[in-house]
């Protein structure tokens, strides 16, 4: 920092002579500030353009099917009859599985990183958990397809089908042949992918809690877990809900990892093990067969628009919750 300071004084002195007298300096400043504003506005325009183009592209499909597009379960390229229900269901359901699985793990790991781990280990373990977020999505897809799916087919799905399948109502979730893929496998893999995001925000929130609050609780004899449960988590709960929403938002739009394992069947099925589809996996999977100007391509763009709207709502809510907690 000291090097910067010395560098600064030299440049600063120079700036006095330029800034005050020569109009060149003022012009440069105007151009620079204009560039800054331009790039700031560009970010806004970019989001607007993305929404507008997806809506525009999907418009023929919305025109052809109306609002029925949202709750029609047919996806038939032969008869050109398209509806988004199967994909919307798959998108939301698999993302919820991911969050439900990732949540206890994140709570535990955040507790471990902030309260239990020896200070020397905190950073390396924290970084290692974060590296899970850096592994590209397609790698999770391959790992899921070649490693996890066979394990699910051999050891997880058959016993679940056998034990839980005959139970009424709940049993509907555990039907069909054990193929290895499906909604549960996709959800589990996404859980690993969103775990680092949720954990990082949990840790950040927990570290921002005033030490005085925690020390007071320790002072009256609370155990470490009691302080975590009764002081830390309630204090940060708004931001922590925001973190969970961020994880949900990430899972909703996950593409490559899901495409490898979910089976890409556009039929509605209650079973966790039956092949299914999400909006993102359908777009990735069916796009190569969708010729320009066909209703199928329009329907895929319409699906994209729906996904954007869902993600936007979830991410905006997440951000609102995280920021409002920071302010209070």
């Amino acid at each position: 920092m000291s090097a910067t300071m010395t560098g600064l004084s030299g440049d600063g002195v120079q700036a006095v002579s330029i800034g005050a007298a020569k109009p060149v300096g003022r012009l440069a400043d105007r151009v620079f500030v204009g560039l800054l504003w331009g790039c700031g506005i560009f970010v806004l325009v970019l989001l607007g353009l993305i929404i507008a183009m997806l809506f525009h592209g999907g418009l023929p499909a919305f025109r052809a099917f109306g609002l029925d597009f949202l709750w029609t379960a047919t996806w038939n390229p032969v008869t050109e009859n398209f509806g988004a229900l199967v994909m919307i269901y798959g998108t939301i359901f698999s993302a919820i599985i991911a969050v439900v699985v990732a949540l206890p793990l994140s709570f535990g790991i955040a507790f471990f990183l902030t309260e239990i781990a020896p200070p020397v280990l905190r950073r390396p373990i924290g970084v290692a958990v974060q590296l899970l977020a850096a592994v590209p999505s397609i790698i999770y897809g391959m790992w899921g397809f070649f490693i996890i799916s066979p394990l699910m087919a051999a050891y997880v799905q058959p016993p679940l089908i056998e034990w839980l399948g005959p139970i009424p109502v709940i049993g509907d979730l555990f039907q069909g042949p054990a193929l290895g893929g499906g909604m549960l496998t996709a959800g589990l893999i996404m859980a690993v992918m969103i775990l680092p995001f949720i954990t990082a925000m949990f840790v950040e929130t927990l570290e921002s809690i005033p030490p005085m609050l925690k020390e007071s609780a320790y002072g009256v004899g609370a155990t470490t877990f009691e302080v975590y449960k009764n002081i830390s988590v309630p204090f940060g709960r708004t931001a922590m809900v925001g973190a969970i929403m961020l994880g949900l938002g990430r899972a909703l739009g996950e593409t490559m990892a899901v495409t490898f394992v979910i089976g890409n069947a556009t039929r509605l099925s209650a079973s966790l093990f039956a092949p299914g589809a999400t909006i993102a996996s359908t777009i990735a999977n069916e796009f190569p067969e969708a010729a320009q100007g066909t209703l199928k391509l329009d329907s895929l763009l319409a699906l994209g628009f729906i996904l954007f709207v869902i993600s936007f709502i979830v991410l905006a809510l997440s951000r609102y919750l995280v920021r409002s907690n920071l302010k209070s």
Binding site: I50, G253, T255, A316
Partner: peptide, 19 residues
Amino acid sequence: ARFVNDILLSAPSILVGLF
């Protein structure tokens, strides 16, 4: 702009491709 950037940061990448 800050809000929009946060959305873009986590928006599904496949939609960027579609766009």
